[in-house]
Design a protein around this nucleic acid. Structure first.
Length: 427
RNA sequence: GGAGGGGUGCCCGAGUGGUUAAAGGGGACGGGCUGUAAACCCGUUGGCUAUGCCUACGUUGGUUCGAAUCCAACCUCCUCCA
């Protein structure tokens, strides 16, 4: 195995972040003798980032921990264009307001992972709208557009995928890669940023920036990509039935976040521990070796550590206690204590006391609790034997749920399957 | 600009006037087996005030007792020609 001179590259390699690099040796040498600045771009297409972006975020974290300066680039400008990479259809175009709102949510995501400030290795946040918005079409085309070959761009996966699927690719989106290349150049000029990182689907775009800088400024920049993560059985990282695994607690509660990691497949545990926690690699090797049922211990540690990074240490304890209560004792978790769970426990649904006094059909309550997307789905769920009321299978979807079903704490536990639960409370 | 071929449910993909809420596969969800795992087996997979009703096969109109299926216009993708 290759030995690396810089802490950054060594750690990144041994923890599984490394997929491709434009010039690993030189970059390693550079990072070993000086502090470098590197960036990753994030588009503002949603109000939060999800677990799919976590590899990138952790990569910036390690960059900072090994003495370098991370730049988080908000795609305030590029989001207006829309990255065709990995999308088989045109994104809905967002307006300025939507982008600004999304950006605010995304900025929050980074706070627990990176230290921001003005020190030499403090993280920096930039917004490419600052330079992209002011570009003038003809001058830009003449100065930069002439360095891009359509012939090559057509070969890029992001373009090819769209064409192969017979989906439209607008000229607007086609320009995305040029703008991203320009971003890199701009960051190199402004902040002496020498490295752009990103998911493997960004390779083409990153290389575009490296080449642009070489042609225009005669400057060597570097690109590094992370593997595109899939779970061991091939599912896309960061997606579940309930939707994306958001990093923002308004979008996904810490409880739900913890559950995502707790439910990792056996085969993924080691890799996830390396990528998504700060645990030392030899400790991970030990956890990874656990076989059979013992693997669950490793998964709990994974869930605890990952949740700690994202939502903080204090919440983790409550979440873990909740999970133990729900899954090991058939309880309802921290909410039982009577307080607000603040996302550390099962979702709580408030239902008007009057409604409960009259009785609510079981299927309707499941829908209200968010355990089914529609009343029809709730009915099917119950017919299939997947609906539970206080742990008991609901036999008939019309069964009425009322005050009488509340336990001693005045709560009703509803379940869809063995893992999805919610607590109903009367107000 | 011309000629031809396409657009079907979350995705892929059958279906060319009624028996089609639409074959098959994937995915997802539920059940079984387990370890809150994987694999495997079974079931479900448009909505609703639900033994019925409503909405759906690119869009909008039309023909017909009846249309995803026929016609027209439009949108859009592909291939070839200029």
């Amino acid at each position: 195995m290759t030995t690396y001179r810089s802490d950054f590259i060594r750690i990144v390699a041994e923890r599984g972040f490394l997929h491709q690099c434009t010039d690993l040796e030189t970059l390693d040498a550079l990072a070993s003798k000086s502090s470098i600045t590197a960036y990753i771009g994030f588009d503002c297409t949603a109000p939060s980032l999800h677990a799919g972006s976590l590899v990138s975020i952790m990569l910036l974290r390690w960059l900072q921990k090994t003495g370098h300066r991370p730049i988080v680039l908000m795609g305030g400008g590029t989001t207006k264009v829309g990255d065709p990479s990995g999308k088989d259809e045109t994104r809905k175009l967002l307006g300025d307001d939507g982008i600004a709102a999304n950006m605010a949510g995304i900025k929050d995501v980074f706070k627990p992972f990176l230290d921001f400030g003005n020190g030499p290795t403090d993280a920096l946040m930039a917004d490419n709208a600052d330079w992209l918005d002011g570009l003038q079409y003809i001058p830009f085309l003449r100065d930069y557009g002439r360095h891009f070959s359509i012939n090559r761009m057509l070969g890029f996966d992001s373009v090819k995928l769209r064409l192969d699927r017979e989906q439209p690719l607008t000229f607007l989106e086609f320009n995305y890669m040029i703008l991203q290349a320009y971003d890199f150049l701009e960051l190199a000029r402004r902040y002496d940023c020498v490295l752009q990182m990103g998911g493997s689907d960004q390779w083409g775009n990153i290389v575009g920036g490296v080449e642009l800088a070489r042609r225009l400024d005669g400057r060597a920049l570097y690109g590094l990509t992370t593997p595109l993560l899939e779970t061991a059985s091939g599912a896309k990282m960061g997606k579940t039935a309930a939707g994306a695994v958001w990093l923002n607690k308004d979008m996904l509660s810490p409880y739900g976040y913890w559950q995502y990691w707790r439910n990792a497949e056996d085969a993924d545990v080691g890799g996830f521990l390396r990528l998504f926690t700060d645990l030392p690699v030899d400790e991970i090797a030990r956890l990874e070796a656990l076989k059979g049922e013992e693997c669950n211990e490793a998964k709990k540690i994974l869930a605890n550590e990952a949740t700690k990074l994202c939502h903080g240490e204090t919440v983790v304890e409550e979440v873990a206690a909740s999970a133990a209560s729900v899954f090991e004792n058939g309880g309802v978790g921290v909410i039982e204590a009577g307080g607000e769970s603040d996302g550390a426990g099962l979702p709580v649904i408030d239902v008007a006391r009057r409604d409960l006094e009259n009785g609510i059909p079981a299927f309707e309550l499941l829908t209200r609790a968010g355990l089914a997307a529609s009343n029809s789905e709730a009915r099917r769920l119950i017919k299939g034997g997947g609906g539970r009321l206080n742990g008991v299978v609901i036999g008939n979807e019309l069964q009425s749920v009322s005050i009488a079903d509340m336990g001693s704490k005045g709560l009703i536990k509803l379940s869809a399957g063995k893992k999805r639960h919610a607590v109903v409370r009367a107000i």
